[in-house]
Design a protein around this nucleic acid. Structure first.
Lengths: 211, 211
DNA sequence: CTAGGATTTGACCGTTCGGTCAACATCTAT
DNA sequence: ATAGATGTTGACCGAACGGTCAAATCCTAG
């Protein structure tokens, strides 16, 4: 049986928008409903609680992230360098886009909820943790390929992948704190340093100007 | 005139503890007062609002951070490598300490507030931004010294310092999300890669086991 | 001793919070 | 046609929220 209405979808979409732009605590169920054009009773028909809505929103957000970023950027045979570059470029563009709409750099939807809620809500903490693990898996596979193809030398793959994911989160956090997407662009080059590359000498003073 | 009472201090200390362990939104004025052993009227005698308390708490937290971490770690003539190592070791120990008390890895008090509030409260965003800028300044000076002493080759100092601070925030975020301080230890080695070092070859397979 | 500021107290404010519920409407499968 | 599931509505709940205030108390300088 297909969905009879789009009510649930509208609520979910509102959660994606509002909680991302502000925070979990600063968006009430009432406001969520108004934004979705739905009455509170309907909300609780589809979601047992605000917390469950948030978990569903995290799932949805991760599905979107996969199909918009991680899939496109990592499911091809580009050099690792290029893949990482595309990620950072996407993040930069995306933060710019949202900022032009709401005036603020929102950062990463997963990192935001992680720092706001993971000491208070174990289920949400686990969910975000899982997202980061899967993200790391994408990066790890790309590193494996790069080693196999000889693009980069053998190294501790897991450690490198985790460092890259952490660095990316750090970049988003700094961009949000400075309310300036340009931070992501400035930090982009740094991500390559987290990988051991063939020759350090050859790249010192590497042609292109940053930013 | 010296402080007549320690009421203000107790409120401030409670804010440091509770907001750090949970979040801004999840700690109410009432609870803050109970934790400090103070009535709500007294709270508003010393602080015009919860928001102002939070800003004062940020100031205090930064003073403490300087005297406990950044001062000790950066105001000596140790090699840069050693300085960064000490920072990460301090973070690891600190997160372990708090976790043994409250069962949760709390992450960075500045990063937490930044991600929770910087899209909603410009004053707090600016304050955290300033903290990060000053942190970056510590790292930048240390990098300058390391270049002057010949420990590392010439490079873009500001870019390196900002990358290191971002990476550090990323490490704290991942540790909090995984609720495991060990993440900080695992990511510690990665910070050195953000600096261009003298010889890459010489360090490959470097003696000491990680973790 | 006393005046005046600093501090403390507890009752109180309106608002919003997340969540509930019974009644009602709509759809769909038989 | 109709029963039962699915979806919608608006009124309602107690609790907690941030914040206010006048009165009482304490401390200290003159």
């Amino acid at each position: 049986m297909v969905a009879a209405t789009d009510t649930r979808e509208r609520i979910l979409a509102s959660a994606l928008d509002l909680i991302y732009a502000r925070s979990y605590a600063n968006v009430g169920v009432q406001e969520l409903c108004e934004h979705a054009g739905v009455k509170k009773g309907s909300f609780y028909h589809f979601f047992p609680s605000k917390r469950d809505l948030t978990i569903a929103a995290l799932d949805r957000q991760w599905e979107l992230a996969k199909q918009r970023i991680w899939g496109p950027a990592f499911t091809n045979h580009l050099p690792l360098r290029e893949k990482l570059q595309r990620c950072f470029d996407f993040f930069y563009d995306h933060q710019c886009g949202v900022k032009s709409k709401i005036g603020m750099v929102p950062g990463c939807p997963f990192g935001n909820l992680a720092l706001e809620l993971s000491t208070q809500d174990e289920a949400i903490r686990r969910k975000v943790d899982q997202v980061f693990r899967e993200t790391t898996a994408y990066v790890r596979r790309a590193i494996e390929e790069a080693i196999a193809s000889g693009e980069i030398p053998k190294q501790d793959i897991s450690a490198a992948a985790e460092a890259i994911v952490a660095y990316t989160q750090g970049a988003m956090l700094m961009a949000k704190t400075r309310n300036d997407p340009g931070v992501i662009k400035e930090l982009r080059q740094g991500v390559f340093r987290l990988l051991q590359t063939r020759s350090t000498k050859a790249r010192s003073g590497n042609g292109k100007k940053c930013v």
